[in-house]
Design a protein around this nucleic acid. Structure first.
Length: 488
RNA sequence: GCUCCCUUCGUCUAGCGGUUAGGACGCGGCCCUCUCAAGGCUGAAACACGAGUUCGAUUCUCGUAGGGAGCGCCA
Protein backbone atom coordinates (compact mmCIF):
# COMPACT_ATOMS: atom_id res chain seq x y z
CA UNK A 1 0.00 0.00 0.00
CA UNK A 2 1.13 3.55 -0.70
CA UNK A 3 0.94 4.54 2.90
CA UNK A 4 3.27 1.87 4.00
CA UNK A 5 5.65 2.72 1.23
CA UNK A 6 5.66 6.39 2.07
CA UNK A 7 6.16 5.74 5.76
CA UNK A 8 9.00 3.44 4.90
CA UNK A 9 10.51 6.00 2.59
CA UNK A 10 10.45 8.52 5.41
CA UNK A 11 11.98 6.22 7.94
CA UNK A 12 14.77 5.32 5.58
CA UNK A 13 15.45 8.95 4.81
CA UNK A 14 15.65 9.78 8.49
CA UNK A 15 18.02 6.93 9.16
CA UNK A 16 20.39 7.25 6.28
CA UNK A 17 20.82 10.98 6.09
CA UNK A 18 21.08 13.62 8.69
CA UNK A 19 17.68 15.20 9.01
CA UNK A 20 17.55 18.89 8.26
CA UNK A 21 14.42 21.00 8.34
CA UNK A 22 13.82 24.69 7.95
CA UNK A 23 11.31 27.32 8.87
CA UNK A 24 11.14 29.99 6.21
CA UNK A 25 8.86 32.91 7.07
CA UNK A 26 8.61 36.03 4.97
CA UNK A 27 9.18 39.21 6.96
CA UNK A 28 6.03 41.01 5.92
CA UNK A 29 4.45 41.08 9.36
CA UNK A 30 4.68 39.69 12.88
CA UNK A 31 5.21 36.02 13.67
CA UNK A 32 1.83 34.43 13.25
CA UNK A 33 0.51 31.75 15.62
CA UNK A 34 0.08 29.43 12.62
CA UNK A 35 3.68 30.09 11.68
CA UNK A 36 4.78 29.12 15.14
CA UNK A 37 2.96 25.80 14.79
CA UNK A 38 4.76 25.15 11.51
CA UNK A 39 8.08 26.13 13.06
CA UNK A 40 7.34 23.90 16.04
CA UNK A 41 6.71 20.84 13.89
CA UNK A 42 9.87 21.48 11.88
CA UNK A 43 11.83 21.98 15.06
CA UNK A 44 10.37 18.88 16.74
CA UNK A 45 11.05 16.70 13.75
CA UNK A 46 14.66 17.84 13.56
CA UNK A 47 15.21 17.49 17.30
CA UNK A 48 13.52 14.11 17.41
CA UNK A 49 15.86 12.78 14.77
CA UNK A 50 18.92 14.49 16.14
CA UNK A 51 19.05 16.66 13.05
CA UNK A 52 19.43 20.33 12.25
CA UNK A 53 16.88 23.11 12.18
CA UNK A 54 17.46 26.10 9.92
CA UNK A 55 15.87 29.54 10.05
CA UNK A 56 15.63 31.32 6.73
CA UNK A 57 14.11 34.69 6.07
CA UNK A 58 12.37 34.82 2.69
CA UNK A 59 12.75 38.47 1.93
CA UNK A 60 12.87 38.50 -1.85
CA UNK A 61 9.90 40.82 -1.93
CA UNK A 62 11.73 44.01 -1.11
CA UNK A 63 8.60 46.06 -1.32
CA UNK A 64 6.99 44.42 1.65
CA UNK A 65 9.81 43.03 3.74
CA UNK A 66 10.73 45.09 6.79
CA UNK A 67 13.41 45.00 9.44
CA UNK A 68 10.68 45.41 12.01
CA UNK A 69 9.12 42.14 10.89
CA UNK A 70 12.45 40.36 10.99
CA UNK A 71 12.96 41.53 14.56
CA UNK A 72 9.47 40.40 15.54
CA UNK A 73 10.06 36.97 14.04
CA UNK A 74 13.36 36.49 15.81
CA UNK A 75 11.93 37.72 19.09
CA UNK A 76 8.92 35.45 18.76
CA UNK A 77 11.03 32.40 17.98
CA UNK A 78 13.27 33.18 20.91
CA UNK A 79 10.34 33.66 23.26
CA UNK A 80 8.87 30.24 22.51
CA UNK A 81 12.33 28.74 22.64
CA UNK A 82 12.51 27.30 19.14
CA UNK A 83 16.24 27.60 18.68
CA UNK A 84 17.85 27.19 15.29
CA UNK A 85 21.16 25.61 14.39
CA UNK A 86 21.81 27.62 11.25
CA UNK A 87 20.82 31.04 10.07
CA UNK A 88 18.99 33.20 9.98
CA UNK A 89 19.79 33.17 6.30
CA UNK A 90 18.52 35.98 4.12
CA UNK A 91 17.57 35.43 0.52
CA UNK A 92 18.46 38.97 -0.37
CA UNK A 93 22.08 37.99 0.28
CA UNK A 94 21.92 35.22 -2.27
CA UNK A 95 20.73 37.01 -5.39
CA UNK A 96 23.87 36.16 -7.36
CA UNK A 97 23.23 32.49 -6.84
CA UNK A 98 19.64 32.70 -8.11
CA UNK A 99 20.74 34.66 -11.16
CA UNK A 100 23.40 32.14 -12.01
CA UNK A 101 20.94 29.27 -11.84
CA UNK A 102 18.33 31.15 -13.80
CA UNK A 103 20.92 31.69 -16.53
CA UNK A 104 21.68 28.01 -16.43
CA UNK A 105 18.02 27.18 -17.00
CA UNK A 106 17.94 29.66 -19.86
CA UNK A 107 20.94 28.00 -21.48
CA UNK A 108 19.49 24.54 -20.97
CA UNK A 109 16.33 25.64 -22.66
CA UNK A 110 14.27 25.06 -19.52
CA UNK A 111 13.41 28.72 -19.17
CA UNK A 112 12.72 31.66 -21.45
CA UNK A 113 12.23 35.41 -21.45
CA UNK A 114 8.68 36.67 -21.37
CA UNK A 115 7.77 40.18 -22.45
CA UNK A 116 4.06 40.08 -21.79
CA UNK A 117 2.59 43.11 -20.07
CA UNK A 118 0.41 42.87 -16.97
CA UNK A 119 -2.58 44.05 -19.01
CA UNK A 120 -2.02 41.37 -21.55
CA UNK A 121 -1.80 38.71 -18.85
CA UNK A 122 -4.94 39.91 -17.15
CA UNK A 123 -6.87 39.76 -20.38
CA UNK A 124 -5.60 36.26 -21.04
CA UNK A 125 -6.68 35.02 -17.62
CA UNK A 126 -10.07 36.62 -17.90
CA UNK A 127 -10.62 34.79 -21.17
CA UNK A 128 -9.56 31.48 -19.68
CA UNK A 129 -11.83 31.79 -16.69
CA UNK A 130 -14.70 32.73 -18.97
CA UNK A 131 -14.00 29.59 -20.96
CA UNK A 132 -14.06 27.46 -17.78
CA UNK A 133 -10.36 26.76 -17.77
CA UNK A 134 -7.82 26.89 -15.00
CA UNK A 135 -6.24 30.29 -15.64
CA UNK A 136 -2.52 30.24 -16.30
CA UNK A 137 0.13 31.55 -18.60
CA UNK A 138 -0.31 29.99 -22.03
CA UNK A 139 3.35 30.05 -23.00
CA UNK A 140 2.98 32.53 -25.81
CA UNK A 141 6.52 33.87 -25.35
CA UNK A 142 8.08 30.42 -25.63
CA UNK A 143 8.54 30.89 -29.35
CA UNK A 144 9.60 34.50 -29.25
CA UNK A 145 13.09 35.13 -30.57
CA UNK A 146 13.25 38.93 -30.68
CA UNK A 147 13.31 41.09 -27.54
CA UNK A 148 10.63 43.72 -27.18
CA UNK A 149 12.12 47.18 -27.01
CA UNK A 150 11.77 49.01 -23.72
CA UNK A 151 10.58 45.97 -21.78
CA UNK A 152 12.82 44.26 -19.24
CA UNK A 153 11.60 40.70 -19.47
CA UNK A 154 10.82 38.23 -16.71
CA UNK A 155 12.15 34.70 -16.89
CA UNK A 156 9.61 31.92 -16.99
CA UNK A 157 10.22 28.29 -16.26
CA UNK A 158 9.24 25.91 -19.04
CA UNK A 159 6.90 23.41 -17.41
CA UNK A 160 6.54 20.10 -19.26
CA UNK A 161 3.29 20.24 -21.24
CA UNK A 162 2.37 16.58 -20.98
CA UNK A 163 2.57 13.93 -18.33
CA UNK A 164 2.02 14.24 -14.60
CA UNK A 165 3.83 14.86 -11.33
CA UNK A 166 3.48 12.55 -8.38
CA UNK A 167 4.17 13.86 -4.92
CA UNK A 168 4.59 11.58 -1.95
CA UNK A 169 3.51 13.58 1.01
CA UNK A 170 4.03 12.30 4.53
CA UNK A 171 0.63 13.49 5.66
CA UNK A 172 -1.42 13.53 2.45
CA UNK A 173 -0.17 10.34 0.86
CA UNK A 174 0.25 10.37 -2.87
CA UNK A 175 -0.98 13.42 -4.77
CA UNK A 176 -1.00 13.54 -8.55
CA UNK A 177 -1.13 16.59 -10.80
CA UNK A 178 -1.49 16.70 -14.54
CA UNK A 179 1.26 18.87 -16.02
CA UNK A 180 -1.33 20.44 -18.27
CA UNK A 181 -2.72 22.13 -15.16
CA UNK A 182 0.58 23.75 -14.34
CA UNK A 183 1.61 26.87 -16.25
CA UNK A 184 4.98 28.43 -16.92
CA UNK A 185 5.64 30.37 -13.77
CA UNK A 186 7.84 33.42 -13.41
CA UNK A 187 11.10 32.58 -11.66
CA UNK A 188 12.89 35.90 -12.10
CA UNK A 189 11.19 39.27 -12.02
CA UNK A 190 11.81 42.04 -14.48
CA UNK A 191 14.13 43.68 -11.97
CA UNK A 192 16.32 40.61 -11.75
CA UNK A 193 15.15 39.38 -8.35
CA UNK A 194 13.93 35.81 -7.91
CA UNK A 195 10.38 34.86 -7.07
CA UNK A 196 9.44 32.61 -4.20
CA UNK A 197 9.07 29.35 -6.11
CA UNK A 198 12.56 29.68 -7.47
CA UNK A 199 14.35 30.82 -4.35
CA UNK A 200 12.82 28.12 -2.12
CA UNK A 201 13.92 25.40 -4.46
CA UNK A 202 17.45 26.74 -4.74
CA UNK A 203 17.78 27.39 -1.02
CA UNK A 204 16.36 24.08 0.10
CA UNK A 205 18.83 22.33 -2.15
CA UNK A 206 21.82 24.52 -1.25
CA UNK A 207 21.08 24.20 2.43
CA UNK A 208 20.64 20.44 2.12
CA UNK A 209 17.13 20.42 3.52
CA UNK A 210 15.95 16.81 3.72
CA UNK A 211 12.37 17.36 4.88
CA UNK A 212 10.20 20.22 3.78
CA UNK A 213 7.51 20.65 6.42
CA UNK A 214 5.15 23.55 5.74
CA UNK A 215 1.53 24.61 5.63
CA UNK A 216 -0.74 22.84 3.20
CA UNK A 217 -1.38 26.08 1.37
CA UNK A 218 1.84 25.05 -0.37
CA UNK A 219 0.65 21.64 -1.47
CA UNK A 220 -0.42 22.83 -4.92
CA UNK A 221 2.81 24.78 -5.27
CA UNK A 222 4.86 21.67 -4.68
CA UNK A 223 4.05 20.33 -8.12
CA UNK A 224 5.60 23.31 -9.86
CA UNK A 225 8.59 23.37 -7.56
CA UNK A 226 9.28 19.72 -8.19
CA UNK A 227 9.72 20.44 -11.90
CA UNK A 228 12.25 23.15 -11.17
CA UNK A 229 14.10 20.79 -8.86
CA UNK A 230 14.28 18.23 -11.64
CA UNK A 231 15.48 20.74 -14.23
CA UNK A 232 18.23 21.90 -11.90
CA UNK A 233 19.26 18.33 -11.21
CA UNK A 234 18.67 18.67 -7.50
CA UNK A 235 17.54 15.93 -5.20
CA UNK A 236 13.94 16.08 -4.11
CA UNK A 237 13.36 16.54 -0.38
CA UNK A 238 10.66 14.63 1.45
CA UNK A 239 7.46 16.63 1.90
CA UNK A 240 4.99 16.97 4.73
CA UNK A 241 2.14 19.42 4.32
CA UNK A 242 0.52 20.45 7.56
CA UNK A 243 -3.18 21.20 7.89
CA UNK A 244 -4.12 24.82 8.37
CA UNK A 245 -5.15 26.41 11.61
CA UNK A 246 -8.43 28.26 11.23
CA UNK A 247 -9.96 30.91 13.45
CA UNK A 248 -12.71 30.05 15.90
CA UNK A 249 -15.29 30.72 13.23
CA UNK A 250 -13.68 28.37 10.75
CA UNK A 251 -12.36 31.19 8.59
CA UNK A 252 -8.70 31.63 7.90
CA UNK A 253 -6.78 33.04 10.85
CA UNK A 254 -6.47 36.78 10.47
CA UNK A 255 -6.12 39.94 12.49
CA UNK A 256 -9.79 40.06 13.32
CA UNK A 257 -9.39 36.82 15.27
CA UNK A 258 -7.74 38.66 18.12
CA UNK A 259 -4.27 37.60 19.03
CA UNK A 260 -2.52 36.05 16.07
CA UNK A 261 0.83 37.59 16.89
CA UNK A 262 2.72 35.26 19.25
CA UNK A 263 4.18 38.11 21.20
CA UNK A 264 0.71 39.20 22.10
CA UNK A 265 0.37 36.01 24.11
CA UNK A 266 3.38 37.00 26.12
CA UNK A 267 1.75 40.34 26.84
CA UNK A 268 -1.43 38.62 27.90
CA UNK A 269 0.43 36.52 30.42
CA UNK A 270 0.66 33.19 28.64
CA UNK A 271 3.63 30.92 29.15
CA UNK A 272 5.58 29.85 26.07
CA UNK A 273 5.38 26.20 27.17
CA UNK A 274 1.59 26.40 27.25
CA UNK A 275 1.44 28.00 23.83
CA UNK A 276 3.63 25.29 22.34
CA UNK A 277 1.70 22.55 24.11
CA UNK A 278 -1.53 23.93 22.75
CA UNK A 279 -0.15 24.23 19.24
CA UNK A 280 1.38 20.78 19.14
CA UNK A 281 -2.06 19.29 19.74
CA UNK A 282 -3.47 21.12 16.76
CA UNK A 283 -3.00 18.56 14.03
CA UNK A 284 -0.90 16.14 16.02
CA UNK A 285 -1.71 13.71 18.78
CA UNK A 286 -0.23 10.94 20.81
CA UNK A 287 -3.15 8.83 22.00
CA UNK A 288 -5.11 10.65 24.67
CA UNK A 289 -2.26 12.65 26.10
CA UNK A 290 -2.92 16.37 26.42
CA UNK A 291 0.01 17.73 28.36
CA UNK A 292 3.54 17.33 27.09
CA UNK A 293 6.77 18.70 28.42
CA UNK A 294 9.16 19.98 25.80
CA UNK A 295 11.24 16.82 26.21
CA UNK A 296 8.20 14.60 25.77
CA UNK A 297 7.21 16.45 22.64
CA UNK A 298 10.65 15.93 21.17
CA UNK A 299 10.69 12.27 22.15
CA UNK A 300 7.18 11.45 20.95
CA UNK A 301 6.76 13.63 17.88
CA UNK A 302 6.51 11.81 14.59
CA UNK A 303 5.02 12.79 11.28
CA UNK A 304 2.70 9.79 11.30
CA UNK A 305 0.87 11.34 14.24
CA UNK A 306 0.00 14.37 12.14
CA UNK A 307 -3.53 14.42 10.80
CA UNK A 308 -4.75 15.83 7.55
CA UNK A 309 -7.70 17.98 8.46
CA UNK A 310 -7.66 21.64 9.36
CA UNK A 311 -8.33 22.64 12.95
CA UNK A 312 -9.78 25.62 14.70
CA UNK A 313 -8.04 27.71 17.26
CA UNK A 314 -9.65 27.56 20.70
CA UNK A 315 -8.66 30.34 23.11
CA UNK A 316 -10.54 28.54 25.90
CA UNK A 317 -8.43 25.45 25.67
CA UNK A 318 -5.23 27.46 25.43
CA UNK A 319 -6.30 29.30 28.56
CA UNK A 320 -6.98 26.06 30.40
CA UNK A 321 -3.59 24.71 29.41
CA UNK A 322 -1.94 27.91 30.52
CA UNK A 323 -3.48 27.56 33.94
CA UNK A 324 -2.25 23.98 34.12
CA UNK A 325 1.22 25.26 33.40
CA UNK A 326 0.97 28.06 35.94
CA UNK A 327 -0.09 25.45 38.47
CA UNK A 328 2.75 23.09 37.64
CA UNK A 329 5.59 25.52 37.10
CA UNK A 330 7.80 26.07 40.15
CA UNK A 331 6.87 29.45 41.67
CA UNK A 332 10.36 30.86 41.30
CA UNK A 333 10.25 30.39 37.51
CA UNK A 334 7.12 32.48 37.26
CA UNK A 335 8.51 35.48 39.10
CA UNK A 336 10.04 37.26 36.14
CA UNK A 337 6.95 37.05 33.95
CA UNK A 338 4.76 38.11 36.81
CA UNK A 339 6.91 41.14 37.56
CA UNK A 340 6.44 42.24 33.98
CA UNK A 341 2.67 42.05 34.45
CA UNK A 342 2.82 44.13 37.63
CA UNK A 343 4.87 46.69 35.75
CA UNK A 344 2.14 46.95 33.17
CA UNK A 345 -0.33 47.60 35.97
CA UNK A 346 1.98 50.14 37.52
CA UNK A 347 2.20 48.12 40.69
CA UNK A 348 5.30 48.55 42.80
CA UNK A 349 6.08 45.23 44.44
CA UNK A 350 9.00 46.48 46.51
CA UNK A 351 6.81 47.08 49.54
CA UNK A 352 5.16 43.71 49.93
CA UNK A 353 5.67 39.99 50.38
CA UNK A 354 7.91 37.72 48.32
CA UNK A 355 6.49 37.19 44.85
CA UNK A 356 6.89 33.44 45.12
CA UNK A 357 4.58 33.50 48.15
CA UNK A 358 2.04 35.51 46.18
CA UNK A 359 2.23 33.02 43.34
CA UNK A 360 1.75 30.10 45.69
CA UNK A 361 -1.36 31.74 47.09
CA UNK A 362 -2.91 32.90 43.81
CA UNK A 363 -1.85 30.49 41.09
CA UNK A 364 -4.82 28.18 41.35
CA UNK A 365 -7.21 31.01 40.62
CA UNK A 366 -5.45 32.64 37.70
CA UNK A 367 -5.37 31.33 34.16
CA UNK A 368 -2.74 33.82 33.03
CA UNK A 369 0.06 35.79 34.65
CA UNK A 370 -1.89 38.89 33.81
CA UNK A 371 -4.85 37.65 35.83
CA UNK A 372 -2.56 36.61 38.62
CA UNK A 373 -1.13 40.11 38.81
CA UNK A 374 -4.45 41.86 38.49
CA UNK A 375 -6.13 39.77 41.17
CA UNK A 376 -3.38 40.32 43.73
CA UNK A 377 -2.86 44.06 43.49
CA UNK A 378 -4.30 44.67 46.97
CA UNK A 379 -1.39 42.74 48.45
CA UNK A 380 0.87 45.63 47.42
CA UNK A 381 -1.36 48.67 47.10
CA UNK A 382 -4.32 49.97 49.03
CA UNK A 383 -7.56 49.88 47.07
CA UNK A 384 -9.53 53.01 46.39
CA UNK A 385 -12.83 51.73 47.71
CA UNK A 386 -14.56 48.56 48.79
CA UNK A 387 -16.75 47.04 46.09
CA UNK A 388 -20.21 48.44 46.92
CA UNK A 389 -21.99 45.14 46.44
CA UNK A 390 -19.58 43.25 48.66
CA UNK A 391 -19.74 45.97 51.31
CA UNK A 392 -23.50 45.98 51.30
CA UNK A 393 -23.69 42.25 51.71
CA UNK A 394 -21.00 41.63 54.30
CA UNK A 395 -20.23 44.80 56.26
CA UNK A 396 -23.25 44.75 58.54
CA UNK A 397 -23.87 45.82 62.08
CA UNK A 398 -23.88 42.24 63.35
CA UNK A 399 -20.21 41.75 62.54
CA UNK A 400 -19.11 45.04 64.08
CA UNK A 401 -18.24 43.65 67.49
CA UNK A 402 -16.62 40.36 66.40
CA UNK A 403 -14.59 42.24 63.83
CA UNK A 404 -13.42 44.73 66.42
CA UNK A 405 -12.45 41.81 68.67
CA UNK A 406 -10.47 40.23 65.89
CA UNK A 407 -8.74 43.49 65.16
CA UNK A 408 -7.68 43.78 68.76
CA UNK A 409 -6.42 40.22 69.02
CA UNK A 410 -4.56 40.55 65.74
CA UNK A 411 -2.79 43.69 66.88
CA UNK A 412 -0.73 41.69 69.35
CA UNK A 413 -0.48 38.43 67.45
CA UNK A 414 3.00 36.91 67.46
CA UNK A 415 4.19 35.92 64.97
CA UNK A 416 2.12 37.34 62.14
CA UNK A 417 1.50 34.09 60.32
CA UNK A 418 -1.27 31.96 58.85
CA UNK A 419 -1.72 29.61 61.81
CA UNK A 420 -2.12 32.40 64.34
CA UNK A 421 -4.45 34.39 62.12
CA UNK A 422 -6.59 31.35 61.51
CA UNK A 423 -6.88 30.43 65.20
CA UNK A 424 -7.55 34.02 66.21
CA UNK A 425 -10.50 34.27 63.85
CA UNK A 426 -11.73 30.85 64.94
CA UNK A 427 -11.55 31.80 68.61
CA UNK A 428 -13.52 34.99 68.12
CA UNK A 429 -16.06 33.13 66.01
CA UNK A 430 -16.50 30.53 68.74
CA UNK A 431 -16.82 33.21 71.37
CA UNK A 432 -19.65 34.84 69.43
CA UNK A 433 -21.10 31.47 68.48
CA UNK A 434 -20.66 32.14 64.80
CA UNK A 435 -19.48 29.90 61.99
CA UNK A 436 -16.04 30.69 60.60
CA UNK A 437 -17.57 31.80 57.32
CA UNK A 438 -19.72 34.40 59.01
CA UNK A 439 -16.56 36.28 59.91
CA UNK A 440 -14.22 35.14 57.18
CA UNK A 441 -16.16 36.76 54.37
CA UNK A 442 -16.62 40.17 56.05
CA UNK A 443 -12.95 40.15 56.90
CA UNK A 444 -12.08 39.32 53.31
CA UNK A 445 -14.14 42.25 52.10
CA UNK A 446 -12.51 44.54 54.65
CA UNK A 447 -9.00 43.48 53.88
CA UNK A 448 -9.13 42.99 50.08
CA UNK A 449 -11.94 45.32 49.10
CA UNK A 450 -13.81 42.49 47.40
CA UNK A 451 -15.38 39.12 47.90
CA UNK A 452 -12.77 36.94 46.26
CA UNK A 453 -9.32 35.96 47.49
CA UNK A 454 -7.22 33.02 48.62
CA UNK A 455 -8.07 31.62 52.08
CA UNK A 456 -8.41 34.50 54.50
CA UNK A 457 -5.48 33.49 56.73
CA UNK A 458 -3.17 33.19 53.73
CA UNK A 459 -4.42 36.45 52.33
CA UNK A 460 -3.96 38.39 55.53
CA UNK A 461 -0.53 36.91 56.12
CA UNK A 462 0.51 38.23 52.71
CA UNK A 463 -1.02 41.67 53.12
CA UNK A 464 0.77 42.20 56.39
CA UNK A 465 -0.29 43.33 59.80
CA UNK A 466 -0.20 47.08 59.37
CA UNK A 467 -2.26 47.12 56.22
CA UNK A 468 -4.73 44.61 57.62
CA UNK A 469 -5.35 46.57 60.80
CA UNK A 470 -5.76 49.82 58.92
CA UNK A 471 -8.17 48.26 56.47
CA UNK A 472 -10.20 46.64 59.23
CA UNK A 473 -10.43 50.02 60.93
CA UNK A 474 -11.66 51.52 57.69
CA UNK A 475 -14.25 48.76 57.36
CA UNK A 476 -15.40 49.30 60.93
CA UNK A 477 -16.04 52.94 60.22
CA UNK A 478 -17.95 51.99 57.09
CA UNK A 479 -20.14 49.82 59.29
CA UNK A 480 -20.54 52.58 61.84
CA UNK A 481 -21.67 55.06 59.21
CA UNK A 482 -24.10 52.58 57.86
CA UNK A 483 -25.57 51.76 61.26
CA UNK A 484 -25.87 55.43 62.06
CA UNK A 485 -27.61 56.10 58.77
CA UNK A 486 -30.03 53.24 59.37
CA UNK A 487 -30.78 54.41 62.90
CA UNK A 488 -31.72 57.90 61.81
C1' G B 1 -14.77 28.74 -12.89
C1' C B 2 -10.62 25.02 -12.99
C1' U B 3 -7.18 21.86 -10.05
C1' C B 4 -5.84 19.82 -5.39
C1' C B 5 -6.83 18.76 -0.20
C1' C B 6 -10.12 17.82 3.96
C1' U B 7 -14.84 15.70 6.68
C1' U B 8 -15.77 11.34 14.42
C1' C B 9 -19.38 15.25 20.15
C1' G B 10 -19.92 22.91 19.69
C1' U B 11 -14.11 22.64 19.58
C1' C B 12 -9.23 19.67 19.73
C1' U B 13 -8.82 14.57 19.01
C1' A B 14 -8.38 8.57 19.91
C1' G B 15 -9.88 4.83 16.63
C1' C B 16 -6.03 2.10 11.88
C1' G B 17 -13.06 -4.06 9.59
C1' G B 18 -16.20 -6.61 14.89
C1' U B 19 -15.69 -1.01 20.70
C1' U B 20 -21.46 0.15 25.53
C1' A B 21 -17.30 4.91 19.60
C1' G B 22 -12.53 6.67 24.34
C1' G B 23 -10.06 11.26 26.22
C1' A B 24 -9.57 16.72 26.59
C1' C B 25 -11.65 21.97 26.40
C1' G B 26 -16.26 24.21 27.04
C1' C B 27 -21.30 23.45 29.22
C1' G B 28 -24.83 21.16 33.36
C1' G B 29 -25.09 18.50 38.22
C1' C B 30 -22.98 16.66 42.82
C1' C B 31 -18.91 16.50 46.44
C1' C B 32 -15.13 19.38 48.97
C1' U B 33 -15.40 24.40 51.16
C1' C B 34 -14.40 30.91 55.01
C1' U B 35 -15.24 33.44 49.14
C1' C B 36 -13.34 32.33 44.40
C1' A B 37 -10.68 28.80 42.39
C1' A B 38 -8.15 24.23 42.12
C1' G B 39 -9.42 19.08 42.72
C1' G B 40 -12.73 14.62 42.64
C1' C B 41 -17.16 12.23 40.80
C1' U B 42 -20.90 12.66 37.20
C1' G B 43 -24.40 14.16 32.92
C1' A B 44 -25.72 15.91 27.98
C1' A B 45 -23.04 15.82 23.34
C1' A B 46 -20.23 12.94 17.33
C1' C B 47 -18.94 8.85 13.01
C1' A B 48 -22.07 14.73 6.82
C1' C B 49 -25.14 11.94 3.07
C1' G B 50 -25.66 7.97 -0.77
C1' A B 51 -23.94 3.81 -3.21
C1' G B 52 -20.62 -0.16 -3.36
C1' U B 53 -16.57 -4.02 -1.26
C1' U B 54 -17.27 -7.44 2.90
C1' C B 55 -20.29 -12.34 6.93
C1' G B 56 -19.66 -7.37 9.06
C1' A B 57 -18.28 -0.79 7.91
C1' U B 58 -16.78 5.11 11.81
C1' U B 59 -12.69 2.42 9.54
C1' C B 60 -11.66 0.40 2.46
C1' U B 61 -13.54 2.40 -2.77
C1' C B 62 -16.56 5.73 -5.63
C1' G B 63 -20.01 9.61 -5.90
C1' U B 64 -22.85 13.90 -3.57
C1' A B 65 -22.83 17.84 -0.22
C1' G B 66 -20.10 21.09 2.81
C1' G B 67 -15.41 23.37 4.13
C1' G B 68 -10.31 24.79 2.87
C1' A B 69 -6.21 25.84 -0.45
C1' G B 70 -3.92 27.10 -5.12
C1' C B 71 -4.57 29.37 -9.86
C1' G B 72 0.48 36.89 -9.13
C1' C B 73 6.71 40.01 -11.72
C1' C B 74 3.18 37.74 -2.79
C1' A B 75 5.38 34.24 0.09
Amino acid sequence: MDWVRIAFHFNELSKTMKVKTRFAPSPTGFLHIGGVRTALFCWLFARHHGGQFVLRIEDTDRERSTQESIDAILEGMTWVGLDWDEGPYYQTERFDRYRALADQLLEQGDAYHCYCSPDELDAMRAEQVAAGQNPGYDGRCRQRTEPVAGVSPVIRFKTPAAGEVVIDDAVRGQVVYANSEIDDLVIMRGDGTPTYHFSVVVDDADMAITHVIRGDDHLNNTARQVHIIAALGFERPAYAHLPMILGEDGARLSKRHGAVNVLEYREQGFLPEAVLNYLVRLGWSHGDQEIFTREEMVRLFELDGVNASASRFSPEKLTWLNQQYILQTPDAELVEGLLEQYRRLDVDTADGPQLSAVIAAFHERAATLRELAASSVYVFHDFAEIEPKAAKKHLRGVVRQPMADIREALADLQPWAEEGIQSTIQAVADQHELGFGKLGQPLRVAVTGGGVSPPIDVTMALIGRDRCLARIDAALSVIDKRVAAAGR
